[in-house]
Computed example of a mutant assay.
Amino acid sequence: MGMRENSAVERMPDPRPGLLEKLVAYVRPEFRADVLVPDSQDPVLGTPTCAVPSCDYPVADHGICNGHRLRWRDRGRPALAAFLAEPGPPIRGRAELGCCTVRGCRYGLAGYGLCFRHRGRWGGPGGRTPPCGPPGQL
């Protein structure tokens, strides 16, 4: 049983369009993006935003996002108009994402200034607490 060696015969280009060309021909230009962010008013892909004026999260229930819905529920489900007049501080989660402090690592933070992988390697439950510092210091 011998193995076939690669032949030096060049293949002629296929005159028919490939799968990518066919796909691009059928996809409208507004959908040809790396990350598609639909308009909130789009009738198919859009999601209305939270009724709280300073919040841009999508609606989950009762016209408000999930974070505000939980806060509304924890307050005893007051009249929605009263809640919207005083919704409280902004919902957490809009802070700038941090970077792992290990030099050369480009992952985000999981805890103690480290990404998930580096945090797991540092120690585990009962292990030593990793140092925190500016990115690239470790």
Rank of each mutant, 00 (worst) to 15 (best):
G2P: 02
G2C: 02
M3N: 12
R4H: 06
N6E: 08
N6G: 08
S7F: 06
E10Y: 09
P13S: 06
P13D: 03
R16E: 09
R16Q: 10
L19T: 15
L19E: 14
L23K: 13
L23T: 12
Y26N: 08
Y26S: 05
F31D: 10
R32K: 13
R32Y: 08
R32C: 10
V35A: 15
V35M: 14
V37H: 12
P38D: 06
P38A: 07
D39Y: 12
L45F: 15
T47I: 05
T47Y: 01
P48D: 02
T49V: 05
A51M: 05
V52Q: 10
D56Y: 06
Y57F: 08
P58Y: 07
G63Y: 01
R71V: 11
W72R: 06
W72D: 01
R73H: 00
R73V: 00
D74T: 00
R75N: 03
R77Q: 00
R77S: 07
A79Q: 01
L80H: 05
A82P: 03
L84I: 04
L84F: 02
A85L: 09
E86A: 10
P87H: 01
P89H: 04
P89Q: 02
P89T: 13
R92E: 14
G93C: 06
E96K: 15
E96P: 11
L97C: 13
G98K: 13
C100E: 01
G104M: 02
C105M: 13
Y107H: 12
Y107M: 02
Y107E: 10
G111I: 06
G113I: 01
G113F: 00
C115L: 06
F116Q: 13
F116T: 12
F116M: 12
F116W: 14
R117D: 12
H118V: 01
R119Y: 09
G120Y: 04
G120K: 13
R121C: 12
W122Q: 02
W122P: 02
G123I: 00
R128V: 02
P130N: 03
P131D: 03
P135N: 03
G136R: 12
G136A: 04
G136V: 07
Q137A: 08
Q137D: 07
L138P: 10
